[in-house]
Amino acid sequence: MTDRKALLTDAAITTLAREGLRGLTHRAVDRVADVPPGSCSYYFRTRLALLTATVERLAELDADELAPVTPVPERVDQDHLAALLAGMAERSVTVNRERMVARYELSLESTRRPELRAALVAVGERYRELASTLLAAAGAADPDRQGRALVAFLDGVIFDRITGAGRVPLDPAAFRRTFAEALRGVLAG
């Protein structure tokens, strides 16, 4: 992604997190990015183009963050994997909270826009494949099925933390315990 497109999609992420989908306009993105009016619409002619590019930018940012675990080693220790997952969840609800809120906004919108849904599904498959590969390296009996379950669990924990549904705050140690217990359950089949 070019620097200008990255600047604009980063501003779209911020706008989505702060204002929701109703607040996401080309003009709002221009304001947040602090660029001349019309810049966003020059690069992304339609709202769908902006939304799709924002999904791609989120995937790009996530790929950078996941780079330390790719490629996946041949064997992965369960405790190490639990700590890795807990760290990802903790970052998702703290330093990457804005990205997660934007992702949830896009996910809900994708239920009404098949074209956006296709982009989200393609990106989501990358995460599920990585989870399957990690679980296979940790000794899972059915890594594809278990990887999908693990991603769903991870998403649920993050959503719970971001929306405030879980009233008890989880500290880093509690996150690690939660993921260690879930991982043991997943790997036990």
Rank of each mutant, 00 (worst) to 15 (best):
M1A: 14
T2A: 09
K5Y: 13
A6D: 15
D10C: 09
T15F: 05
L16D: 04
A17P: 03
A17D: 01
G20C: 09
T25S: 15
A28L: 10
A28G: 02
V29Y: 02
R31I: 09
R31H: 02
V32N: 06
D34F: 01
D34I: 04
P36Q: 08
G38V: 07
G38R: 05
S39G: 07
S39C: 10
C40W: 05
S41N: 11
S41T: 14
Y42Q: 01
Y42R: 12
Y43I: 03
R47E: 08
R47P: 14
A49M: 06
A49P: 05
L51N: 12
T52V: 15
A53S: 05
T54P: 03
L58H: 11
L58I: 13
L61V: 09
L61T: 03
D64C: 10
A67D: 11
P68H: 07
T70R: 05
T70L: 12
P71E: 10
V72F: 00
P73F: 00
P73N: 10
V76L: 14
V76Q: 08
D77M: 01
Q78T: 14
D79Q: 10
H80P: 00
A83H: 14
L84K: 11
L85E: 01
A86M: 03
G87Y: 01
G87V: 06
M88R: 03
A89I: 06
R91S: 14
V93P: 14
V93H: 15
T94Q: 06
V95R: 11
R97V: 10
R97F: 04
R97G: 08
E98D: 14
E98M: 15
R99I: 03
M100D: 03
M100G: 04
V101K: 00
V101L: 13
A102L: 03
Y104M: 11
E105L: 00
E105R: 04
S110G: 04
S110P: 07
T111P: 05
R112N: 10
R112I: 02
R113H: 14
P114S: 07
E115V: 02
L116V: 03
R117A: 10
A119I: 11
A119K: 01
A119W: 03
A119E: 06
V121K: 05
V123L: 11
G124R: 07
E125G: 04
E125V: 12
R126L: 12
Y127W: 14
R128I: 03
L130R: 11
A131T: 00
S132W: 10
S132T: 09
S132H: 08
A136R: 03
A137Q: 00
A137C: 00
A137W: 00
A138T: 02
G139H: 04
A140I: 01
A140H: 05
A141I: 01
P143G: 10
R145F: 07
G147A: 05
G147H: 05
A152R: 08
A152D: 11
L154K: 10
L154F: 08
I158G: 04
F159K: 09
F159I: 13
D160T: 13
D160G: 14
D160S: 15
D160L: 12
I162F: 01
I162D: 00
I162G: 04
G166Y: 15
R167D: 09
V168K: 14
P169W: 06
A173T: 10
R176E: 10
R177V: 08
T178S: 09
T178M: 12
T178V: 12
F179P: 05
F179M: 05
A180L: 06
L183R: 00
L183K: 06
R184Q: 09
R184V: 15
V186Q: 02
G189R: 13
G189K: 08
